[in-house]
């Protein structure tokens, strides 16, 4: 398994996350994320041979019936977000 993360990997992740990084930041994060991955790598030492895929719970088929219920108040929705709003819409600078 890959233990180290390259600066290129970090830059790729940054593009996917729409985050701008300076070269220095990319180097710093490559080190930090690499350290985290190496730490988590310890999990690979566990022998999982013969262990079947399992969900996080033994529950199955948890459904809701198709009945609408009231949503949040528009005021609360708008207050809850970081961006500004106009006419009920949340407004951000153009993504086009």
């Amino acid at each position: 398994m890959k233990k180290n993360i390259t600066v290129e990997d970090v830059k790729k992740i940054a593009i996917l996350a729409h985050i701008e990084l300076t070269d220095e930041e990319a180097i710093t994060y490559a080190k930090q994320i690499g350290a985290i991955l190496t730490y988590v790598e310890k999990l690979n030492e566990v022998d999982t041979k013969g262990v079947e895929f399992k969900s996080q719970t033994d529950l199955k088929n948890v459904f809701r019936e198709d009945i609408p219920k009231p949503s949040l108040d528009q005021k609360d929705v708008l207050r809850n977000r970081l961006s500004k709003s106009k006419g009920g819409s949340l407004v951000i600078s153009s993504v086009l």
Binding site: K86, L90, V91, I92, S94, V95
Partner: peptide, 13 residues
């Protein structure tokens, strides 16, 4: 839904 208008993007969820 996003509507792009005049340098801004309007979001309705």
């Amino acid at each position: 839904k996003s509507i792009h208008n005049n340098g801004e993007t309007f979001l309705d969820f």
